[in-house]
């Protein structure tokens, strides 16, 4: 809620947060990127316009999303944040009458090029949704391995190891290791969401899109998801849409602020280091929004 926003002074110093703490069994985050020029930007959106039929939901967005960082997209509801997010794994085009203009480059590859199949793209750009949506007829194990069992690419030989690894990385392994055969829906809401994150991790995506992943969860479950995001940072490029500005300030490296124009089309107001956006935004609109003066 916009009214609960605390002033920027209280925000944690996100940019200075040390690299994620190594946990057992995992290699610590790498030292400086070997090829910085090619690596620092993961996704480039260029003059993006997204439509539903004749309605323009997102207008002229150009944005660079850094690799292996967390980028938060905030803004009032209805400003096209989710629509924008869904352009990155081409889920937008599944809606009736959906259309896009502009370009999105992922590691320099135009993902809307004719040679790129949306189905293939979605294996490398995972997504976590607003409400936990495990497959109710599948067990926990089957949920995690669902993407891998679709086939395509190399057939995994060590499914068990991958399931364990993904559940561990989703901080769920200890809770479920003794009943992997139970249905995914037998878990609590927060556990279900971590299961969905494990499911997304299993296909080894490079980008994880999160569409308000904690909005259906209680504060404690929310905290665990946030901790999890921080641990995944460094290995994955994470883009999170959130209506919770405190959450954005807690977890993200970069923040993009979207607003809605007269024509109800969402547009990018500004983007920058999270600390900057929340303490010293360039735009008055951003200032108003984060200080709760927006509409």
């Amino acid at each position: 809620m916009a009214t609960e926003i605390r002033p920027g002074a209280d925000l944690p110093a996100v940019p200075t947060r040390p690299t994620i703490a190594p946990t057992s069994g995992r290699v610590p985050a790498a030292a400086p990127d070997p090829a910085p020029a090619a690596r620092t930007t993961k996704i480039e959106a260029r003059d993006l316009n997204l439509y539903y039929g004749s309605f323009r939901a997102v207008r002229d967005v150009t944005m660079d999303i850094p690799a292996n960082k967390i980028t938060a997209i905030i803004g009032p509801s209805g400003c096209g944040k989710s629509t924008f997010l869904r352009a990155f794994n081409r889920m937008h085009e599944l809606a009736q009458g959906a259309r896009m203009e502009g370009r999105i480059l992922l590691d320099g590859v135009d993902i809307y090029d004719r040679s790129v199949d949306a189905v293939d793209l979605r294996r490398l750009v995972g997504m976590v949704f607003q409400r936990p949506n495990p497959f109710p007829t599948m067990s926990i194990y089957e949920n995690v391995s669902a993407g891998l069992r679709l086939g395509g690419g190399h057939k995994p030989t060590n499914l068990d190891a991958i399931v364990e690894d993904c559940l561990t990385r989703a901080a769920l392994w200890d809770e479920v290791k003794d009943h992997l055969g139970d249905p995914g829906t037998s878990l609590s809401g927060g556990q279900q969401q971590r299961l969905c994150i494990a499911r997304a991790l299993a296909v080894d995506p490079e980008v994880i899109l999160m569409d308000e992943p904690a909005s259906a969860l209680d504060p404690i479950a929310t905290l665990r998801i946030e901790e999890l995001m921080l641990e995944l940072r460094g290995s994955y490029t994470i883009v999170i849409v959130t209506h919770n500005m405190q959450q954005a300030s807690r977890v993200s490296d970069q923040t993009a602020f979207f607003s809605m124009g007269e024509d109800r089309a969402g547009y990018l107001v500004e983007m920058g280091q999270t600390a900057t956006i929340f303490t010293n935004p360039r735009e008055q609109l951003t200032e108003d929004y984060i200080s709760g003066r927006f509409g």
């Binding site: 690596r39 690799a67 292996n68 590859v109 490398l124 690894d165 990385r169 299993a202 080894d204 460094g234």
Partner: peptide, 17 residues
């Protein structure tokens, strides 16, 4: 699966590949 999950960004094959 060309790599186990948890591969660090730097050691993954390029996106296009």
């Amino acid at each position: 699966m060309s790599a186990t999950p948890g591969t660090l960004a730097g050691s993954r094959a390029p996106f296009a590949e």
